[in-house]
């Protein structure tokens, strides 16, 4: 519980920094810190799937935001070949491999359902109760549209927002390019 509070405090501080800092790049990086803190919190409260999704989304968003914020090209470090750098890189890489190997040893064997290893897991509950409670023969649909209908509503909202953004951005680009051509909104291919 204490770790949860520590990470919550970290998230709040990062969010305040993101709001208050005058530099756009610092704000973007702080926003990334908020997201990663949130993913760690999700890991602690027992939602590893959401944590993984958050990490992926955060990395993508962070890269895009940094790319948008930085106007000029990101300089690549060019210098004399350094043996120390290579050794350090390989060391860190090896540490990572060892870490993941240790984790992989503790994974359940392939094909064994994790939900059967936990008592009173929600998956078992859904499988047992979905037919009786929803009449839906497909347990996946029962979870999507009955037990977790709010999630589905959120997903639909995400798609809706995405299409609105795409249409708006691309339409403006088209209009600008056709104005430059001086033919109005012509009809082409």
């Amino acid at each position: 519980m204490l770790t949860l509070y520590i990470f919550m405090f970290f998230i709040i501080v990062a969010a305040l920094v993101a709001v208050e800092t005058p530099h756009a790049l610092s704000a973007v990086v702080s926003l990334g810190a908020v997201g990663f803190g949130l993913s760690i919190v999700c890991l602690f409260i027992g939602a590893p799937d959401i944590a993984i999704t958050l990490v992926v989304v955060e990395i993508l968003v962070l890269i895009h935001m940094i790319r948008v914020t930085l106007k000029r090209e990101i300089p690549t470090i060019m210098g004399p070949f350094s043996r120390l750098n290579v050794i350090a890189t390989m060391l860190i890489f090896g540490l990572g491999v060892a870490f993941f190997y240790q984790v992989a040893l503790e994974l359940p064997p392939f094909g064994k359902a994790v939900m059967t290893m936990i008592e009173n897991s929600p998956s078992i509950y859904y499988l047992k109760e979905s037919l009786g409670q929803t009449e839906a023969a497909s347990a996946i649909t029962a979870v999507l549209l009955e037990f977790r209908a709010y999630d589905t509503l959120g997903e639909a909202t995400v798609i809706f927002t995405a299409i609105i953004g795409a249409v708006m951005l691309l339409q403006r680009r088209v209009r600008r390019s056709s104005e430059r051509k001086g033919e109005g909104n012509g009809n082409g291919a």
Partner: peptide, 17 residues
């Protein structure tokens, strides 16, 4: 709509298209 907007890349708004 997404595929249309991304591929055809032409205006279909009220003022023409």
């Amino acid at each position: 709509l997404v595929v249309m907007v991304l591929t055809l890349f032409k205006p279909w708004s009220a003022e023409g298209g």
